[in-house]
Design a binder for these strands. Structure first.
Lengths: 208, 208
DNA sequence: TCAAAAAGTGAATAAACATTCAATTATTGA
DNA sequence: TCAATAATTGAATGTTTATTCACTTTTTGA
């Protein structure tokens, strides 16, 4: 054989893959899956369309990987909050605020995460990830109920409701461009209050 | 002129239109907008594809009309509940339960209402209708706050959260086919509890 | 019954994209 | 430098559907 991948080449390949993922993520963040056609991804990543198929078997799998990476990162952050030693309501509020702040901060995948992707394969993944997302909140609820910090309730239903509540409040009403910092903080606070009261009955204000 | 529409003909035309709308609604209920291709709609309605374009300028406008009719009917029911003389929390709980029960009862547009349609034109309509939907709940909240039945809160945010909460709880977790009547009632109750506590702090149980 | 006008049909057209692949360029080790 | 191999390209292909339109059938009023 007169060809074997050098370390440099290996790196360049990995680089290409990352560039494609990044480009996809960017497009999806800005305009949803709708705007992330293969041609657009290729242009944004600075590669050819054929290139993309060297790294990903199909558009659907590319989308799934983008979604998965985004959700896993998000879940990691929220899990850290969920495992803190503070009281369950405090952790829950902190988790909600953490997610909402990031979502309001700039273009992100929140919308694509909620919305229905065109592709059934991606859709399946999306539902799975939403469920996983809810599980973080469910864990806080279950823990809080055990410790008597949160009243008894249907943890599955409450977790789903929580996820629905703060995602809807984010997607629906706001044009992200015409929103000041203060308005955003106000909305964040309103959502936190809603979510805390929803599961605790009473709103507690301590941050974390 | 040797042709003018007779009353009978007029009726048949209206009938065709309705059949097309009904067929679209059926397909969307069962498989989302994805499954409602013009060809499928035509077959289901028992007309030709060309026919559809005699009654609707485009697929998008057909979809919007289906969505609009469904939402308006839903809003009418909920508005009636919102205008009852009972205390605001009672009305709110009743409205939530009313919507959830219908959604769980069988194939319906709940999913399509929440999910992202493929077409931007339909998407715009969808967001508008979701907002309208939230307004019914907002009205109950505002009224309840005035009467001191509901604690002061950001009515816009709470309304959005409510809509998100009960729609998510409906779409996410359940396979409608593998769910018993009892389970459905249980879920309905869990959602009601969540929503009531979310805006009132305390859960009251009276039906309506 | 007849001709004008409209309703109705569905095969053909068109547009939008994902995917492929023959050809080209780059990399590697000898 | 060279041949072998891999990476890369982007025009061509295939697919999926909305939409159109030339043609057929039905309806209407005289």
């Amino acid at each position: 054989m007169t060809y074997r991948r050098s370390a440099l080449m290996e790196e360049r390949l990995a680089n290409n893959r990352d560039r494609i993922l990044l480009a996809t993520r960017k497009l999806v963040s800005e305009g949803g899956f709708r705007d992330a056609q293969i041609a657009a991804v290729a242009t944004t990543a600075g590669v050819s369309t054929g290139m993309i198929y060297r790294y990903f078997p199909s558009k659907a799998e590319l989308f799934v990987e983008v979604l998965s990476a985004a959700v896993e990162q998000e879940i990691e952050i929220l899990t850290e909050i969920a495992n803190r030693p503070s009281p369950a309501p405090t952790r829950l509020g902190a988790a909600v605020v953490s997610f909402v702040r990031r979502a309001l901060a700039g273009p992100n995948l929140a919308y694509a995460f909620i919305a229905e992707p065109v592709d059934p394969e991606v859709d399946t993944a999306r539902i799975r990830y939403r469920k996983k997302f809810g599980d973080v909140f469910k864990a806080i609820l279950v823990d809080g109920m055990e410790k008597g910090e949160i009243p008894q309730q249907d943890a599955d239903a409450s977790a789903a409701c929580l996820v629905g509540a703060f995602t809807e409040a984010l997607v629906g009403p706001m044009d992200p461009r015409r929103t000041t910092r203060a308005t955003k903080e106000q909305l964040t606070e309103s959502i936190r209050t809603f979510c805390l009261r929803a599961v605790c009955g009473i709103w507690k204000s301590d941050d974390a």
